[in-house]
């Protein structure tokens, strides 16, 4: 069976270190999954930035955005990578999360990654990202990766690689042990009217 992994990356430059971290985390997870058949859907938030804004305003997704939301909903696991701006995830990243269908991430394994200009931002993962995904009911991996500017171009870069590998290996144990629950279709699995009536008047 194919393991579907959705990857959200919210970097805005090209090339972007946030995208680079997303790619490295993805490679690490795919490698750790070993012989599994893996399909990866990469979602670059920048490509649908206007669509995400429009969705917030109108309440529905453009076809381009809908395709990406569907990939996230259908994924067995989710990897996210966001720049840290002003002590938190980027606004664009949060807007994408805001337009996901209700309960889309409930029970879904999520691996957190973030980038920033200095290692002094690294706890933003735990102070901002972790509560967000806890609220959404995701199975958030305990090991997350923060990559600061200095991690990419120094002796620390080697350590970044080992942190990424450790995160990927731990994450795969969660993915393997907790397949994401299938979403129910509210237009197929309907509540019969008698039950609605009984529920409505239950004091």
């Amino acid at each position: 069976m194919t393991t579907r992994i959705a990857v959200i990356t919210a970097g805005i430059t090209d090339p972007s270190s946030t995208r680079l971290l997303a790619d490295r985390l993805t490679e690490s997870v795919v490698r750790a999954l070993g012989g599994h058949d893996v399909a990866v859907d990469l979602i670059e938030v920048r490509e649908v930035a206007h669509d995400v804004t429009n969705n917030v305003l109108t309440g529905f997704a453009s076809p381009e955005l809908q395709e990406r939301l569907d990939a996230i909903v259908a994924a067995d696991a989710l990897i996210v990578s966001t720049p840290i701006y002003s002590a938190s995830y980027s606004g664009l990243f949060k807007m994408l999360i805001d337009v996901l269908p209700k309960d889309a991430l409930r029970g879904k394994p999520v691996l957190l990654g973030a980038t920033g200009g200095t290692a002094r931002h690294s706890l933003a993962i735990d102070h901002a990202l972790r509560p967000l995904f806890a609220y959404l009911g995701a199975l958030v991996a305990p090991v997350a990766v923060f990559a600061a500017s200095e991690d990419w171009g120094s002796i620390e870069a080697g350590r970044l690689g080992s942190r990424i590998d450790r995160a990927g290996a731990d994450f795969v144990r969660i993915v393997a042990g907790a397949p994401a629950p299938r979403a129910t279709d509210p237009f197929e699995d309907i509540t019969p009217f008698e039950a609605l009536l009984a529920d409505a008047s239950r004091a």
Binding site: T53, N54, L57, T58, F60, S62, P63
Partner: peptide
């Protein structure tokens, strides 16, 4: 409802 959001063309297409 839809002002200041999508373009008229997008809204007519979608």
């Amino acid at each position: 409802v839809y002002g200041h959001g999508p373009s008229l063309e997008d809204m007519m297409a979608q």
